[in-house]
Amino acid sequence: MSESPQTPEAFVQHFVEVTQRISGQVIGSDLEEQLNQAFPAGGEWFEAAKRMCRAGCEEGWLCAREAGGIKFGRAVPPSDTLNGMSIDVVEMDSIVGPHHSHPNGEIDLVMPLLGAAEFDGRGAGWKVYGPGSAHRPTVTGGKALVLYLLPDGAIEFTRG
């Protein structure tokens, strides 16, 4: 039996700067604005993150599972290195995902791959959901990778 490819340390370290900025912040619209200014779509940091995520999908250490037409996977469990955040990545192509809630909030990095893909109405960039929020994640207009940071790795799939 072969082992699954492991998440490279360089990938984890790329997100340390972001999780340090998030640590201690209220997770909401102000944080979304801060992240979009500090790590803007099309900027050097964003493009490096997108390259790493694409490579991870190709190499099999990201989005290694699939259900309902959505590729997904947890790349990094919550850790002190990431200030208590986990990293998950999904690949979605014009599809509505399963309803879930975010007990501690969810910080999403939207990376369109094909077409004018949007995730819950957001094109390339950051989208932040506060604690206690819930949704059916929806990608329209093409294919996107969405990386999400979850405080304490908390997510609850629901019937909604």
Rank of each mutant, 00 (worst) to 15 (best):
E32H: 11
W61L: 05
I70G: 07
K50M: 10
G115D: 09
I87A: 05
A144P: 03
S29M: 11
M111C: 07
W45N: 02
Q6I: 14
T158H: 10
Q20M: 12
G69T: 00
I155F: 14
E106Q: 11
A10Q: 15
W126Q: 03
L145N: 03
F11N: 07
T138K: 12
L109P: 02
D152E: 14
S23W: 08
S79Y: 03
I27Y: 01
D152S: 11
N83G: 14
V90I: 10
E106W: 03
E156F: 07
L114T: 15
R21A: 15
E32G: 13
C57G: 08
P40I: 01
P137M: 08
G28H: 02
F72I: 05
Q25A: 11
M92H: 02
H14L: 13
Q20W: 06
S23M: 06
H100L: 09
A116F: 03
N83H: 14
F72R: 02
L62K: 01
V139K: 04
I22F: 00
F15N: 03
H102V: 04
S2I: 07
S2P: 08
E58C: 00
S23D: 15
N83Y: 09
S79C: 10
A55N: 09
Q34F: 08
F72M: 00
E32P: 12
A67D: 15
W126F: 07
N36L: 10
G160F: 12
R159E: 15
V12H: 06
E47M: 15
P151K: 03
M92F: 00
A124F: 15
V89R: 02
P137S: 04
Q6C: 12
Y129S: 05
V12M: 12
F157C: 01
V128Q: 05
G105Y: 11
T140P: 12
K127Q: 10
D93Y: 13
G123Y: 12
S4D: 14
I70R: 01
S2R: 12
S86K: 01
G115V: 12
E106Y: 09
